[in-house]
């Protein structure tokens, strides 16, 4: 198997290129979610450009659609499109690579960007799987700030009501949103209890930027029967460079020349450590 830890850093470099070239991007959440997407797409899911029409393949919804740059990097690496095109065209006039997932592009199931839609949509897709007695699994990734949307909890209720053990949600628990710390904006430190009380199997991932821990959690989710599983993945917003890490103002930001130099150095070091560390 490929070294997924190193791959996550390589994909981060793609994201930085996109954001610098396109002069826009939700950089902080891209960095925090990278290992989650990498583990789901390169280890867990049965999905590729070749099997998109296969009704039995797994499905994914990027509920925190603003982290589209990370999603583009992953899909490009999967072969859905060329990363060079994404970097050259992202956010530019007439581009198909817009600032949120769009299902005109290969590999993207649903349009997202308005937070709080991904889980209920995933419930529908998982429910269809149950109706048709298919074995596919449905994955969705949400932000922690996103969890304030009531629709998330309406979806959560329905998922356990219909015993959707083919559904797995991951919360990118980076503890930041636009206005600052999630606990100051709208507190939900008892997240695990909340999901449990909604009938979910809850798995805490102590380090949500650790591929091994994510793998163990997602493998165990597959074995859980009779209820949906949610991973509370404790991540670091801006993960990969001290320039961005845990800084609320890096939610959406384009690095300047000096910051960029440091970020590139840090990411290269991260990749090196993953390969040889």
């Amino acid at each position: 198997m490929e070294n997924l830890k190193a791959l996550a850093y390589e994909l981060r470099e793609n994201v930085i290129d996109m954001i610098v070239e396109g002069k826009a991007g939700h950089i902080g959440g891209d960095m925090s979610v990278m290992e989650i997407l990498t583990e789901i797409y390169f280890d867990q899911m049965n999905i590729s450009p070749e099997n998109m029409d296969d009704p039995d393949r797994d499905k994914f919804i990027m509920s925190k659609g603003h982290s589209v740059e990370a999603y583009y990097a992953v899909l490009a690496k999967k072969g859905f499109f060329d990363i060079k095109d994404v970097i050259a065209e992202f956010s530019k006039f007439g581009s198909q690579f817009i600032g949120h997932p769009n299902n005109k592009l290969p590999g993207i199931e649903m349009n997202s960007g308005s937070l709080g839609h991904g889980l209920p949509v995933s419930v529908g897709m998982a429910l269809a799987g149950k109706m048709d007695e298919k074995d596919y699994r449905v994955y969705t990734v949400m932000g922690d700030g996103e969890l304030a949307e009531g629709t998330v909890w309406e979806g959560a209720m329905a998922a356990s009501h219909y015993k959707l053990d083919n559904l797995c949600a991951v919360v990118d628990r980076n503890r930041l949103q636009i206005s600052g710390n999630t606990e100051d904006v709208m507190a939900h430190d008892d997240l695990h209890e909340r999901f449990r009380s909604f009938g979910w199997n809850v798995i805490d991932v102590a380090d949500g930027n650790d591929i091994d821990q994510l793998k163990a959690a997602l493998d165990s989710a597959k074995e859980t029967k009779g209820k949906p599983t949610v991973l509370i993945a404790n991540t670091v917003k801006g993960k990969g460079s001290s320039v961005m890490e845990n800084k609320a103002n890096w939610h959406h930001k384009v690095p300047n020349a000096e910051e960029l130099e440091q970020i590139r150095k840090d990411l290269a070091a991260g990749k090196e450590a993953a390969l040889h560390g």
Binding site: G22, A24, G65, S91, K92, S95, I98, G99, H100, N102, N111, S112, G113, S114
Partner: peptide, 8 residues
């Protein structure tokens, strides 16, 4: 919101 697309 320009390039952020129709959701925005």
């Amino acid at each position: 919101y320009g390039a952020l697309g129709m959701s925005h």
